[in-house]
Structures are given as C-alpha cells and as structure tokens.
Design a protein around this nucleic acid. Sequence first.
DNA 1: TTCATATAAATTGCGCACAATATAATTGTG
DNA 2: CACAATTATATTGTGCGCAATTTATATGAA
Lengths: 141, 141
Amino acid sequence: MKDHLHLNEQLCFPVYVFAKEIINQYRPLLDELELTYPQYLVMLVLWEQDKQTVNQLGEKLKLDSGTLTPLLKRMEQKEFVSRVRSTIDERSVNISLTEKGKSLREQAQAIPQKMVASMGISTEDLESLKNIIHKITNTRK
Amino acid sequence: MKDHLHLNEQLCFPVYVFAKEIINQYRPLLDELELTYPQYLVMLVLWEQDKQTVNQLGEKLKLDSGTLTPLLKRMEQKEFVSRVRSTIDERSVNISLTEKGKSLREQAQAIPQKMVASMGISTEDLESLKNIIHKITNTRK
DNA sequence: TTCATATAAATTGCGCACAATATAATTGTG
DNA sequence: CACAATTATATTGTGCGCAATTTATATGAA
C-alpha cells in the first residue's frame, strides 16, 4: 500500500518552484525600472486602463487590500501612481498613473521578449503550458 | 506594431496565480497539522530521509538559509524537528524529525488525495501539466 | 428617516522569499 | 604550519501574501 507523500511526486512543488523562478528571472529586468514583480503587474493593468480602484486592481491581480494598500503606497512614493479617494464614493481610492508612470511603459517594452529569451523555453512549450494552465484555472471556477 | 505589455498575454501571471491558488487550497488541510506549505515541504523531504543539513534541505526545496533558518526554528518550537549542530563539521546544522514529527506523517497521508479532489483537475490534465513543467524546468539547467 | 447590513480600504500580525552581509569553521595551497 | 579562500549557517532589512480586525462610507428595508 503505497502513499503519495513524496516531494517529486507532487504537482504542486514544481509549480511553486517554477513561479519563484519566473519572478527571479524578472528581477534584474525590473530592477532597472525600480519595480518589483507585483508592482509590474499593477503597471500592466494600469497601462491597459488608467484610473482604477484598489478593488478593481485586486480582482484582476487576485490580491487583497492587505497586500495592495502598502504596495501602492510604495508605488506612490516612487511617483509611478497617485492615490486619490473618490469623491463619488468616498470608500473607494482611485489609482492613476502619473506622467512618470505612463512614460515607464516605453522602458518596459523590451521586457516580454527578454523574458522569453532568458527563460529558454520554446514557443511551443510556452504555448502549451499557457493553454493547460488556462484550461485548469478556468474549468475550476 | 503591437507590443506585449498585457496581463492576459503573459505566461508568468497565470503561473504566479496558480501557484498561489495551490497554496491556498493546501491551507485548510495543513492548518489541521499546524503546518504552513513550506513547512510541509520540509516534512516531505525529512519523511523521505531523516537527518539532513540545512544546506541539503535548501538544495532540494530551492530555499536559502535566510528563509530556512527562521522557518526551521518555528518548526523546532512546534517540536516537529530538532536542530543540532554537527560535531563532525560544526558549520553544519542537522535537522531531524522528532517523534511528534514522525507520527505526523500518518495524519498527512490523506492530504494528496484531498488535494487532487479539491482542485478539481482531471488526472490527465494533472499529468500533462506535471510533464510540461518538468520538461521546462529541467531543459533549462 | 433610521438603523442594520454591506462594502472599500486600511491596519495588524505572522510567515515566507531573497539580497546582502556577518560570523564561524574548514579546506587547500604554498 | 600559516593563511587566504571557501563553505555553512545566521542575521538584517525589504517586500509581498493573506487572515482577521477596524474604520468609514454607502445602501436598503422597515
């Protein structure tokens, strides 16, 4: 009667390690922009649509206010975003890009290609991984 | 000329979210054993082979002493492991299972199946995901 | 209108994760 | 043997990530 309590049998461990590796691959690229990986994700979301509430960011990035509030304060200090409480609904805080935040986008252009290159994953593997994770995470909801 | 700075185009974001989801799925199961996910990984490694140095654990789990030292101290406080400096090489610290740590293995037996069940992933998807991540992370070294 | 309920952020507290540095023991080379 | 270089762990500091709680505002039903 075999059990399954072995590290290398786990699905979860490889995913956990892979996720950390990705973030570590990003680090040198993002250091140049003075961004961390989660901060970079916030920028991606804001570059697509400026001015969003903390709540909207949190839903898209799957992060709660306990993570976002201090993170966004750090981004405000670095002058990438502004945090302004909404006048319409004073419970909400609007996060908007500053000019510095908008212009950072140009510097970030090169990142996706650099990442693909530095990870050394073939385009096919990358596609199939993307597909399967997409399938799994969406089937589940 | 299209750029690639869009959240949903990224490979990395789905992997990052999926890894977090996995850990969150583990949480209620591991709470019962008074373990966090990284601590559970340490237990898996020690259940396979008792008495390992911090270094050996770190290599298997891809974690450094800055992470492991405090984590292992917490596990020591909960009396799952002992930390004893090696007499042969006094730079090393041997991490061994206590009786409580050994017996915890029985309580953990049910976890892998519960996880597979609660994640709602088909066995095939699970296998192919495991394979592709394995392929990617091993090709790369 | 009033008051319970819901919602949005912020706060607190804990545990990683990792870079950088420090400390101490060991090893290798002349 | 001496001593520089290496190795193993610990420490410090910063930044998530999340549970639990708090504070403030808004909403909805009686």
